[in-house]
Amino acid sequence: MDTYKLILNGKTLKGETTTEAVDAATAEKVFKHAANEHGVHGHWTYDPETKTFTVTE
């Protein structure tokens, strides 16, 4: 398992979190669910070198 990071750049919610996942696709599902639960919808990017997802509203 690897550690993946999410950076939230929402209009009303900003922050960072991490998750352990077997691959980037699994981490993305976890992060998108969490972002949706917090009402953050926007443009997603992924940097494979740093294993970091970013969502920007």
Rank of each mutant, 00 (worst) to 15 (best):
K14N: 09
T19R: 04
V55R: 00
N9H: 10
T17N: 06
G39L: 05
H33I: 14
A24C: 13
T12E: 13
K51L: 11
K14C: 15
V22R: 12
A27M: 01
T56F: 07
T50K: 07
A35D: 01
E37A: 13
T52H: 03
T17R: 13
T3K: 09
T17V: 15
V40T: 03
F31M: 02
M1V: 11
T56D: 08
G39N: 10
T26N: 08
A35T: 06
D2V: 12
K29D: 08
A35L: 12
F31P: 00
T3Y: 06
T26D: 10
A35R: 01
T54L: 05
A34L: 15
G15P: 04
L6H: 01
A25P: 08
V30H: 11
T18A: 07
K14A: 08
E57V: 06
K11I: 15
H43M: 12
V55M: 04
T50M: 06
A35S: 05
W44A: 01
F31W: 01
L8R: 01
T56Q: 07
P48S: 10
K32P: 00
E16W: 10
E57N: 04
L8E: 03
L8M: 14
V22N: 10
E37H: 11
K32L: 11
T52W: 02
T12R: 05
T52A: 04
F53R: 00
T54S: 05
Y46C: 01
F31Q: 00
E16V: 08
K29M: 13
A35W: 06
T50E: 06
N9G: 04
T56H: 08
T50W: 05
V55I: 08
L13S: 09
K5T: 13
K5Q: 05
V55W: 03
W44D: 00
D23V: 02
T50F: 06
F53L: 01
N9T: 07
K11T: 14
H33W: 10
G39Q: 06
A21I: 02
W44V: 02
T54W: 06
P48I: 08
H38G: 08
F53M: 01
D2N: 13
H41R: 10
E20T: 12
N36E: 14
A25F: 10
D2Q: 14
G10P: 03
F53C: 01
I7A: 03
V22L: 12
N36G: 10
V22W: 12
T17L: 15
D2K: 12
T17F: 15
M1F: 11
V30S: 07
A27Q: 00
A34Q: 13
V30A: 11
T50Q: 06
T26I: 07
D47V: 05
E20S: 11
K14P: 04
T45C: 07
E57F: 06
E49I: 11
L8A: 04
T19F: 12
W44Y: 02
G39R: 06
Y4Q: 01
H41F: 14
T12W: 15
A27E: 00
F53G: 01
T26C: 07
G39H: 06
P48W: 07
E16S: 09
Y46G: 00
Y4D: 02
E16P: 04
T50H: 07
T54A: 04
T45W: 07
A21M: 02
D23C: 05
A34C: 15
L13A: 08
G42C: 02
D47C: 10
D2S: 13
E49V: 11
N9E: 08
G15T: 14
Y46E: 00
H41A: 10
F31T: 00
H41E: 12
I7C: 06
H33T: 12
K29T: 10
H33N: 11
T45P: 00
A24K: 12
W44K: 00
A25I: 11
A21W: 01
K5P: 02
T12Y: 15
V30E: 09
K14Y: 14
L6Q: 01
T45L: 07
E16F: 11
T45M: 09
T54G: 03
T19K: 04
K32N: 05
N36M: 14
E28K: 08
V30I: 15
A35E: 02
V22Y: 13
K11A: 14
A21P: 00
E37L: 13
N9W: 11
T12M: 09
W44H: 01
T12H: 15
E37F: 11
E37R: 10
E16G: 05
Y4A: 01
E16D: 05
E37S: 13
Y46I: 01
T26E: 14
E28C: 11
A35K: 01
T12C: 14
A25K: 10
V40L: 10
L13E: 09
K51C: 04
D2W: 12
K14D: 05
M1H: 08
N36K: 14
G39F: 09
N36D: 12
T45K: 08
H41T: 11
M1Y: 12
T54K: 05
T12L: 13
N9K: 09
